[in-house]
């Protein structure tokens, strides 16, 4: 579930970088949240405009589609930082010490490889819609009011790049724990039992 796992910190360089990156990640997640709020405002404007002034918002759907990547993807690194992406922890919840860090290291490494490939793929998706010499730099436009789409497409590789940075930090964190045999390493989300997750979930409400 999307509760926040605990991430420990100390005065080490790793931990300080973790804190610094977290600030950026929080801002990005907040922007996603504002996007969700704007979605609501946009609908209110559209419905009142249509029903009371016979003046529907031109390009309502276009604007929603432009905003969605910002809402749905931009803050992804913040969720990863707190271990918020869901997983099945029935096995990993039983593990301790070096075995646990080994599994965490491996799965995080796989995610990093995936994300680097996806930065490449999503950048190329953006790049095909972007043309420096075209009006509005646009080589792909929305269906109704012809908004250039490249800004929305650019959101994705940017978000994934920050996520990749976050994954590198977590790899270092797990790597340290694996080598040094640490019990409570800093800068990585610590595995919580289902009960702990539930407690954190309840805490938010």
């Amino acid at each position: 579930m999307a509760g926040s796992a605990s991430v420990l910190s100390d005065g080490s360089l790793l931990s300080r970088i973790d804190k610094r990156l977290e600030k950026l990640e929080w801002v990005m997640a907040f922007v996603s949240g504002i996007g969700a709020f704007m979605l609501m405002v946009l609908a209110v404007v559209s419905v009142t405009g249509r029903n009371f002034f016979n003046e529907p918002l031109p390009g309502y759907v276009d604007w929603i589609e432009m905003a969605m990547p910002l809402i749905a993807i931009f803050g992804i690194a913040y969720v990863q930082r707190s271990g918020g992406h869901i997983r099945m922890d029935i096995l990993i919840g039983q593990l301790k010490g070096r075995v646990l860090w080994f599994f965490e290291f491996m799965t995080t490494f796989f995610i990093l490889v995936l994300m680097i490939l996806l930065v490449w793929g999503t950048w190329s998706h953006f790049d095909r819609s972007f043309d420096f010499s075209a009006p509005n730099w646009s080589r792909d436009s929305s269906i109704d009011i012809g908004l250039p789409i490249w800004p929305a497409k650019l959101v994705v590789p940017v978000a994934f790049s920050v996520l990749s940075l976050r994954l590198v930090l977590q790899l270092i964190g797990y790597g340290r724990a694996l080598v040094l045999g640490l019990d409570r390493p800093v800068a990585v989300p610590l595995v919580q039992s289902a009960a702990e997750i539930a407690a954190a979930e309840a805490e938010q409400i």
């Binding site: 929080w26 907040f30 809402i71 992406h85």
Partner: peptide, 16 residues
């Protein structure tokens, strides 16, 4: 707003 973003992003990550 931040909690909404976190939960939405988590769900959308699974979707994409």
């Amino acid at each position: 707003l931040v909690e909404t973003a976190k939960l939405s992003i988590m769900i959308f990550a699974i979707i994409w």
